[in-house]
Amino acid sequence: MLSLIKNYVNQKQNVFWPGKVELVKYRVSNISPFLGLIFITLVFSFTTNGRFASISNMTNLVNQCFNVIIIAVGISFVFAHGGMDMSIGSVLGVSSYVGAMVWNMNNMPGVAGFFIAILVAMVFTFITSTVHIVARVPVFVASLCIRYICSGILTTLVSENDMYIDYTKYNGLNNGILKFFVLIIVIAIGYILYEYTAVGKSLKSIGGNKTMSYHSGVKTSRYIWGAYMILGITIGIVSMFSLARVGNVTATTGVGMEFDAMTAIVLGGFPIKGGARAKIRSAIIGAVTVAVLTNGLTLIGLDPSIIYGIKGVMFIVIVGISYVRKKGEIVN
């Protein structure tokens, strides 16, 4: 019996056990984005005399975070394997434009606009990923080129006139409840794909170690392509909903969307290089946080120009808390 215990203790000694402090730190950093979100929600609920939690503001909030959440779901797959995409905003602009053209045709059903917008977005993300995979151009550069190409296309298209749609015809798409359900569906599909299928698992493993993944039978190129296709679909969806909300397409449609998505991801504690610690829920929590912050600060009645500054400071604080700065080291 004694030898059994001894043996057990011996075994334990050879194993690296993180100290209590590290473990607590790790757990805190794991849930801190979530706590942060709850915290600011509570703060705004009290400081705005309940206006924040009102039904009308909730509909507003759904509208505000809708775009970013859906893009964040798509881009999670891209960031999970260590990729990125700088062209989201301009691709969104072009696909909105094409979708609007379809909607303005008399004999086309509204759904067709959706499909074609998604298709257009997928074509561009396909080009980005193909250039990256086949020609081995860093994806940052490849997507930057697509960004310029798309904004060039869009500027040319709207140089004469901005594109308008019949606002009343598609107003139904602005329904808060409809959008809420679309969100739930997109999140659910994204979540299952990401956490419960080979797609998400393989992409995370590529982010962790591409060579190892390839040696383990993961078809790396195929999955990377897939990730950009998923991103394309989400861009397409967002392009049409935002078109229905705004009613027109101009040269600035979609501008900066990629940065909003990236901010959301970082804020949620999603490791920017992907890998095993990349969780899709981080991306979603981050997107909601951004929306809540913007919404709440506006409700308080702050000047929009000050809001930018406050947001910046709060991001630094939240990110500073949530990222584990130094991991425990092991030596033998």
């Binding site: 698992k201 995370k204 493993s205 993944s213 039978g217 890998g275 095993a276």
Partner: peptide, 24 residues
């Protein structure tokens, strides 16, 4: 360390990767 493991991932993630098809 370079080619056979994802260092920054759990033992589970490292073991199941080639067997994902088997686990479906």
């Amino acid at each position: 360390d370079k080619e056979a493991l994802i260092l920054n991932a759990s033992i589970i993630d490292n073991i199941v990767l080639p067997s994902l098809d088997r686990l479906k």
